[in-house]
Each structure stands twice: as structure tokens, then as C-alpha cells.
């Protein structure tokens, strides 16, 4: 087991390094001149200003040198300064990340809590109403465009029915708690500020449902398919031939096997939620990483973009590593080949 963990860990480090190289190369070869974007036409027409700007941001160094600086900084937790906010990028990210982590985690738990049972029941009661429901859920979840879904739920539940709070993490009249973790639910609960807790929770409902949509669809679909596959295996027939109850056959025999593909998908889906909530965050004015990514991209804010992509890459690799580990725990064949 230890050997497996260490070798997977080594592989993860290599993958992160490769990812940073790719990110760096892409970021430094995309069209869009940051000088123009930042200085504006007038200042950009003055060669001295431009040269000074390029020098200040190290844009005049050779490519490999700049990569080295980037790597070195990264190892020290320094991703440089944002071209827009003129603050260390990592500080910006630290401000924005909690909102996203909170939203993504709630959305993920939501899609697991609904998707797993739904997928399992759909497979066990194949072609019943619950199977049709599961198929509808996964079809809608996977195919409905997120921004459309976001607008629709916002229009219905906030604009029309007025039973949900509006965009943002809190009502304008609520006082945000002093950040401890930056996750509002945890911070307010810790401080015992239940009014703000309720407000934060209410604000999470709509965006997390919207964000959960496609993940829920994927998890339902994968769980259903994996369960159908597992239920058709010989060992399930053997389990029935032993005289086990239907429940014991499903949960004790089919489910542990069906979980293998679901774990892989779930890990990737969670990483995706952390990385890709641009649409939802924009519509719900959610001050999270998605929004930050979006504004940085529009402004061609290189340090910010690279920091975000690097962190996303690390998140993906880390999740992958965790998936590998849970695989080894779930499936004894992984360790001994």
C-alpha cells in the first residue's frame, strides 16, 4: 500500500510540473497584448512607457527565464502581482476561493445525495417510473445550459414567486462574519450567528441547485449504468442463489462494485465544480473563483490567469490522486496485480 501511495504521489508531482509548463507556454503565446490592454492606446504609443511597463513585469526576459521565475515563485507561494488589482495574486485568490469552495461543495453533496440513490433505484427497478424519472433528471441535468437554468430559476423563485433571496452570498443588510475559514456557513456557525447562517444558507439554495444540475445528471447516469452492469454479473446471481434478501444483494454485492466508476466520475466532477462555475457565479453575482477567472481572462491578467489555471491543475491532480487511493481501498485487485 505504501509503495502504491508513494508511486502515485510521485506521478502526481510530475503531472503538476507538466501542467505548469503547458499553462505557461499557452499563456505566453496566446494573442492579446497585455501592454495594450493595460496601458490603453495613448500610453501604449509612448515607447518609453511601454518599455518601462515590460521591464517592470519582466515581459522583456527570455521565455525560459520567465518560466523559471514563475516556477520558483510558485514554489514559494508567489504567483506575482495581478495586473489589474496590483495585489499579490494569491491574496486575490484567497479572497475569492472560499465562496467557490462553499458553493461547489454544497452542490457536490447535493448531487451525490440525490444522484446516488436515484441511480441505484433506477437500476434496481429498471423501466419503472423511478427509472424514467432518473433518465429525465440526467438528460435535463446534462443537457440544459447552465446559464439558462440559472436565469430560469432566478426568475421563477426570486423574481416571480419571491420565495428565494436574490443574488449574492448574503443580503445587503446582513453583516458578513469576520472570516475564519471564509466559508460563511462554517464561520457563522462557529460564531453562533444563526441569523446570518440562515441568510447564507438561503442564498446558497438556488445557485447550488443550478450548479449541481449537470453533476447530478452525470452521477445519476453513471450510477445507474454501473449498477446495471454490476447487477448483471455472475456473482450477483450467486448471491441470490445463496438466499440473500434482495436488499443485501444490492447493497452488499452490486453496490461496492458499482462504486468504482462512480468514484472516478465523482472526483472529476468535484474538481470541475471547483474550476468551472463561471456561468453560475456570474448570474448569481457570486464573488467566487469563476468570476475572478472571467474578469482576469477579459483583462488578459497573465499572473492571475496562470495562478488560477495552476491551482485548478493542482486541484485536478490532487483529486485524481485521492480517486486512485480510494480505488485501492475499494478494489483489492488494484494493489496486487
Amino acid at each position: 500500500m505504501l509503495r502504491y501511495v508513494v508511486s502515485r504521489l510521485g506521478l502526481s508531482v510530475v503531472m503538476v510540473l507538466l501542467a505548469t509548463l503547458v499553462i505557461f507556454l499557452i499563456a505566453n503565446t496566446v494573442p492579446g497584448d497585455p501592454v495594450l490592454m493595460q496601458l490603453g492606446d495613448l500610453a501604449a504609443s509612448n515607447p518609453a512607457t511601454v518599455a518601462e511597463f515590460r521591464h517592470h513585469w519582466g515581459l522583456d526576459l527570455p521565455l525560459w527565464h520567465r518560466y523559471w521565475i514563475f516556477l520558483d515563485g510558485m514554489l514559494h507561494g508567489d504567483f506575482g502581482e495581478s495586473l489589474v488589482s496590483r495585489r499579490p495574486v494569491l491574496r486575490d485568490i484567497a479572497d475569492y476561493a472560499p465562496a467557490t469552495v462553499e458553493l461547489a461543495s454544497i452542490a457536490f453533496v447535493l448531487s451525490l445525495a440525490v444522484g446516488l440513490p436515484l441511480g441505484i433505484l433506477a437500476a434496481v427497478r429498471r423501466d419503472s417510473w423511478i427509472d424514467h424519472l432518473a433518465r429525465a433528471v440526467s438528460l435535463i441535468g446534462v443537457s440544459a445550459p447552465t446559464f439558462w437554468l440559472a436565469f430560469v430559476v432566478l426568475a421563477i423563485f426570486y423574481g416571480w414567486l419571491d420565495i428565494a433571496p436574490g443574488p449574492g452570498r448574503l443580503d445587503p443588510v446582513s453583516f458578513p462574519p469576520t472570516p475564519i475559514t471564509g466559508l460563511l456557513l462554517i464561520d457563522t456557525a462557529w460564531l453562533g450567528d444563526w441569523d446570518t447562517f440562515r441568510d447564507a444558507a438561503a442564498h446558497l439554495v438556488l445557485p447550488s441547485i443550478v450548479l449541481a444540475g449537470s453533476t447530478l445528471g452525470l452521477i445519476t447516469r453513471t450510477t445507474r449504468a454501473a449498477m446495471l452492469e454490476a447487477l448483471s454479473q455472475d456473482y450477483v446471481r450467486v448471491a441470490r442463489a445463496k438466499g440473500l434478501r434482495g436488499r443485501a444483494v444490492v447493497t452488499g454485492h452490486a453496490l461496492p462494485n458499482a462504486m468504482l466508476p462512480v468514484v472516478t466520475l465523482g472526483g472529476l466532477a468535484y474538481a470541475n465544480l471547483l474550476a468551472g462555475a463561471v456561468m453560475t457565479e456570474t448570474v448569481f453575482s457570486w464573488p467566487g473563483l469563476g468570476r475572478y477567472t472571467f474578469t482576469s481572462a477579459v483583462a488578459v491578467d497573465f499572473p492571475a490567469i496562470m495562478a488560477i489555471t495552476t491551482i485548478v491543475a493542482i486541484v485536478f491532480v490532487a483529486v485524481n490522486f485521492l480517486v486512485d487511493l480510494s480505488y485501492a481501498l475499494l478494489d483489492p485487485r488494484v494493489l496486487k496485480r
Partner: peptide, 13 residues
């Protein structure tokens, strides 16, 4: 008892 012993036992238990 079934034909294929390779698939008759649950691999993760």
C-alpha cells in the same frame, strides 16, 4: 454452483 468460478465470486469482498 455455476459454470465460471472466475466470475462467480464477488471480486471486492
Amino acid at each position: 454452483v455455476f459454470q465460471d468460478p472466475m466470475t462467480s465470486l464477488n471480486p471486492v469482498l
